[in-house]
Design a protein around this nucleic acid. Structure first.
Length: 301
DNA sequence: GGCCAGGTGTACC
DNA sequence: GGTACACATGGC
């Protein structure tokens, strides 16, 4: 199946810390599991080529997951015209937001607190291998597993989760799985709530604070105004928009809520990816972009 | 060995 | 309202 699409950077999108169980294989293809089905994705000049092994693949779900309904050019038009955003977009113009399954996204990001992305990937994979279900793969292919259901994880002892290297996050995941398993409509209901209420509902779950709630809203519920602020985004905001200053959390919250427009979450993902891949830890130099944030910084003060 | 990682919960002021 | 700290684990 071919999805004709321009401007889609598959590698950047799948490796940008939104999802944790897609793997690059030789030939620049990517393999992963959506629901109970294995897929292989490959980028070509014509678009995205999708392989499946089931009789009746749900191409619509792949299409939805990949965010192909988004009009990327129109979205980028809404970004603020400032040097940091221009640099971030220029660095990776085909970066997209995905639309994940809410449960898998919620569980994955509960694992994410103070872990490196590589470690989150390891934990998510371990969970799937131990508690997920095997899915059909091509002949001779290594086994692949679905992400474990909330019901399955609700029935697993916390100690078993710890053995997947979850550390102190095991309790959060265990309790959250049980709460959601008791109330099967919890995550579905969120989809119909305004973003603020949906965020509050997510934050009632143990292990989910503002940042992870915003990740789930952005990566699973399509709330593209949600703006997760993690250590990377915090560094990016400070060095790109407030060089030499110490903005308070209030100032930063106000800034992120007002500066980046209706698709602030999209802008955030560009900044996150740009900063993490291009600028790295040597953030202290304010940066390749002298004077970058001056105007923007003043606007909020 | 010390520091950091797509943070959160809690205690304290 | 903010600030400080504990919380597991692994990579560098």
């Amino acid at each position: 199946m071919l999805f004709a699409v321009k401007e889609y950077d598959l590698a950047a999108t799948l490796a940008s810390g939104q999802v944790f169980r897609w793997r690059r294989i030789k030939g620049d293809a990517w393999e992963g599991v959506l629901g109970d089905h294995w897929f292989r994705l490959r980028q070509s000049a014509a678009g995205l080529d999708v392989e499946a092994v089931t009789d009746r693949p749900r191409w619509d779900r792949v299409h939805h997951f990949l965010g192909l309904d988004d009009d990327l050019a129109a979205i980028r038009q809404t970004f603020p015209v400032d040097a940091p955003m221009q640099m971030a977009v220029q660095a990776c113009p085909g970066l997209r937001l995905l639309r994940q399954d809410p449960w898998e996204c919620t569980a994955s990001f509960i694992l994410s607190s103070t872990k490196q992305i590589v470690q989150i990937q390891q934990c998510a994979e371990l969970l799937a291998e131990r508690f997920g279900e095997p899915v059909a793969v091509p002949a001779g292919h290594a086994p692949a597993y679905s992400f474990p259901s909330m019901k399955r994880l609700a029935g697993v002892a916390e100690a078993e989760l710890r053995s997947c290297k979850l550390g102190f996050r095991a309790r959060y995941l265990s309790v959250t799985a049980r709460i959601l398993n008791e109330d099967a409509s919890y995550l579905n209901t969120l989809a119909r709530l305004p973003t603020v209420q949906a965020r509050e509902a997510l934050m009632r779950l143990p292990g989910i604070g503002r940042k992870i709630a915003d990740c789930v809203l952005l990566f699973a519920y399509g709330r593209q105004d949600a703006f997760p602020v993690d250590v990377w985004v915090l560094r990016a905001l400070r060095s790109l928009y407030f060089p030499g200053k110490k903005p308070s959390s209030r100032t930063l919250e106000h800034f992120t809520a007002n500066h980046f427009g209706p698709y602030a979450g999209y802008a955030q993902q560009y900044l996150f990816h740009y900063f993490r891949t291009c600028l790295g830890r040597t953030e202290s130099k304010p940066l390749l972009i002298p004077q970058a944030g001056r105007t923007a910084g003043k606007r909020v003060s």
